[in-house]
Design a protein around this nucleic acid. Structure first.
Lengths: 241, 241
DNA sequence: TTCATAATTTTTGCATACAATTTTAGGGAG
DNA sequence: CTCCCTAAAATTGTATGCAAAAATTATGAA
């Protein structure tokens, strides 16, 4: 589920022997990210090192190193001498995260408009219409997947590596919320309209407009999520569009 | 010297004494941040664990944990089985970082305008005129210190904790560059004019204008830094204003 | 019972030992 | 002299043991 880096231990073709095996603390971090996103480790849940070690089949040293990384990413919260827990962001934290992601994507949109060539636009267009197809067919899961790809790809097209990394990291923090909310189809039509505007703005290289649309898009996403939350009376679960 | 994150042992309610002593890996991380900012560890320099352990007086376990944190912050770069090195961001990386910081501060400006009361504005005003005084006196160091405080405080006034943390982290990555460049007084006048505009916009709660000024301010900062770099023929050293 | 307190167990923090990998040094062969 | 191969040294990755701290249970008095 998590986007792993290429695994040097297994990625080799025949003859291209990996120079070394992937460190356990990296694999452990990946596994932990997955477990958190998929809810195998619930938000707020206390994490006991030895228990996790048994489950992952590693010793405490690499696990603890992985935990430090996850903490820096905001996925777990460390309490000195009192162990760690899966981060349980408040609705306010999640709203804050959306605001920041919105600002990052807005910047990405502006930068992308200055760099994209016709190929890039065409690629986004393909993704967009694939997503539209899934939407009309009501294929929720595929729709969300494409949606996320589009946003990610747009950020990549900014060519700003710092931006890409910051966006990826913040997105990871609320991935679980999106994962959980994959069942709600609310706001599809509006979201699709906004995505069409995004595509238009990108195609015409109108960076300022694209930035505005992205900010608005993220704001609306948050609003919809908050309404969804109020209606379902469950912890803030967010839409992924 | 380093802006430490909130200490989990002391953060929380006022008067809540630390229940235990600060973990070694946290202290080590703080020390390492300082050493990197001050150039005691040079960019690109290979980091040997045992040597650092001897210097810091800790064993490898907490040091390695600290290194994982620093890597997540972007201050060091890890190469599996091949050790770590102090990150040596390219001019492009630094430019990218400035762009993202600009977007974050722009968002902070907008949010701050919706929240600040007269006290907050007055506080910024005081910092501003203190900075102006240091500028006319040519007190470079104090000028930079106040300058940084103003930007940090503005971001804090956004009330968005995710934003504050992201800004703090990205600022940390280029702190060494600013530290090195503390000798250049270029662009003071222009920077001061921009800061006056910032104060105006904040006082009149004009979020959109403040955001634009901040973006421009950061862009100009980068441009000046790049020119400074070309002129001195040294690795990109950045102004701190 | 209920609260406080002391003993016990569990869990975390750190150092160290060992294994795996990479880097370096040393010899030839061409 | 350079290149390549091999062995030694150095360095990183992982497991484990022990000490310190926290959580839990047990104990006793009001």
């Amino acid at each position: 589920m998590s986007e792993r880096g290429p695994d040097p231990a297994t990625a080799g073709y025949a003859g291209q022997r990996p120079r070394s095996r992937r460190p356990l603390h990296e694999s452990a971090a990946d596994r932990l990210r997955d477990m958190i996103v998929e809810g195998e480790l619930a938000p707020g849940e206390r994490i006991r090192e030895q228990a996790l070690c048994d489950r992952l089949g590693v010793s405490r040293t690499p696990l603890r190193e992985a935990m430090k990384v996850l903490a820096a990413e905001g996925l777990v919260t460390l309490q000195p001498n009192r162990g760690a827990m899966v981060s349980d962001p408040s609705p306010a934290d999640i709203a804050d995260t959306f605001k920041v992601i919105g600002a990052l994507e807005a910047l990405a949109g502006e930068l992308a408009c200055e760099r994209v060539d016709e190929n890039d636009v065409a690629e986004i267009r393909v993704l967009h219409y694939q997503m539209a197809l899934h939407q009309t067919r009501g294929e929720l899961r595929e729709y969300f997947r494409l949606n996320q790809r589009i946003h990610e790809r747009l950020v990549e097209l900014s060519g700003n590596r710092v931006l890409i990394e910051a966006h990826r990291q913040l997105g990871g923090r609320i991935r679980r919320q999106r994962f959980v909310a994959n069942r709600s189809g609310a706001r599809w039509e509006q979201a699709m309209r906004e995505h069409e505007q995004m595509l238009d703005a990108l195609a015409s290289r109108d960076g300022r407009r694209l930035a505005d649309i992205l900010r608005l898009h993220l704001d609306n996403k948050l609003t919809a999520a908050e309404r969804f939350d109020r209606e379902t009376e469950k912890p803030l679960a967010l839409l992924a569009d």
